[in-house]
Design a protein around this nucleic acid. Structure first.
Length: 267
DNA sequence: ATGGTGGACCATCCA
C-alpha cells in the first residue's frame, strides 16, 4: 500500500493537482489537511472518477480534513475521543474543529490530523494546541493497548518541528512556536507512547522540509520546515519499506505551501 | 535593478 499525507491549503483550488499527484505517485490512500471547505463543497467527483472513496469533515473555510482511498474506507470517525474544542473567550463556541478524521483502509487505521497552530508563544491557541496533543497521546495510547495488532498511522500537519535540523535556521525561531520545548515535548510524548516517525529514516535531514512559507521566497531559498509527519504504531512501522517527501509538488504556480509525504507499506 | 504570498471571501482572518 502507498499511503500519503498532504496539507493542500484548499482542496477546491487544487483538486486537479491532487488528482494528478495520486496518479503520478500511484497512491492508494491520501490524507488531506486544510481542505478549507464544507462537506457539501468538497469536489468528491474528481476523485470518485479515479476510483477513490472520500471521507471528509469541514464546517467552514477553516481547517477541514479528508481521507481518500481506493482500497476501502471503513469505520469513519470524526474527531478522536477526548479531542478538545477551541473555546472563545466567552467559552460559548464549543463546536469541535474539523481537525481529525479516522478511517480503516485495507486493515490500516489512518488518522488525518491537522494539529492546531499555536500562533505565538503568548497566544491562548498555544495552550489549546498542547491540550489537543496531550489528548491525542492519550487516545493513541488507548488504541495501542486495545488493539496492538492493528496498524495505526497518525498522519498530517503537526505544526511542530521536533528537531533543530527541521528548520533552516534555529536563530530565526528563537521566540517562535513550532520549536518551543513544550511543543517538542508534546510531540515526543506521542513518539514515546509508541508511534515512530517512519519517514525520517528514509529521508534524513538536514535540509529535508515539508513546508515553505509563501512569503520571503522561502522555497527557492530552501528555507523550509519539516512539520508534516507519518507516525506509525509498531505494527505499522514494521511494514514500511520506503518513504519520501515529494518536493516537486511545491514547485510552480498553484502549489500548496506544503509538500506531500509518501510512505510505502509491505502487504 | 527590482521586488518578493496566498486562500478563504468582501474586511479581514489565518497560516
Amino acid at each position: 500500500m502507498r499511503l500519503a499525507t498532504w496539507n493542500v491549503n484548499s482542496i477546491r483550488t487544487r483538486a486537479d493537482r491532487v488528482a494528478a499527484f495520486l496518479q503520478r505517485e500511484d497512491v492508494d490512500v491520501l490524507a488531506l489537511q486544510e481542505t478549507k471547505c464544507r462537506d457539501d463543497q468538497f469536489p468528491e467527483m474528481v476523485f470518485s472518477a479515479l476510483g477513490y472513496e472520500v471521507a471528509h469533515v469541514g464546517h467552514s473555510q477553516w481547517n477541514g480534513v479528508a481521507i481518500l482511498s481506493r482500497v476501502g474506507l471503513e469505520d469513519v470517525t470524526v474527531g478522536f475521543p477526548g479531542m478538545p474544542s477551541w473555546s472563545s473567550k466567552e467559552g460559548l463556541d464549543a463546536t469541535p474543529e474539523a481537525r481529525a478524521l479516522g478511517a480503516t483502509c485495507a486493515g490500516v487505521r489512518i488518522w488525518s490530523l491537522y494539529v492546531p497552530n499555536g500562533r505565538t508563544l503568548a497566544d491562548p491557541h498555544l495552550q489549546y494546541k498542547l491540550e489537543w496533543l496531550a489528548a491525542l497521546r492519550a487516545a493513541g495510547s488507548d488504541w495501542l493497548t486495545e488493539t496492538p495488532e492493528t496498524p495505526v498511522a497518525l498522519v498530517g500537519d503537526w505544526n511542530i518541528a521536533p528537531e533543530d535540523d527541521d528548520v533552516w535556521d534555529m536563530a530565526v525561531f528563537a521566540h517562535s512556536t513550532h520549536v518551543s520545548p513544550p511543543e517538542r515535548a508534546a510531540f515526543r510524548a506521542i513518539v514515546e507512547a509508541g508511534y515512530a516517525d517512519v519517514v525520517r529514516p528514509y529521508a534524513p535531514g538536514p535540509g529535508v522540509y515539508t513546508y515553505w512559507d509563501y512569503t520571503q521566497l522561502r522555497f527557492p531559498r530552501r528555507e523550509g520546515m519539516r512539520i508534516d509527519f507519518v507516525l506509525g504504531s509498531p505494527a505499522l512501522a514494521g511494514r514500511v519499506t520506503n518513504a519520501l517527501v515529494d518536493r516537486e509538488e511545491r514547485k510552480g504556480k498553484g502549489a500548496s505551501d506544503h509538500a506531500p509525504v509518501v510512505v510505502e507499506l509491505a502487504d
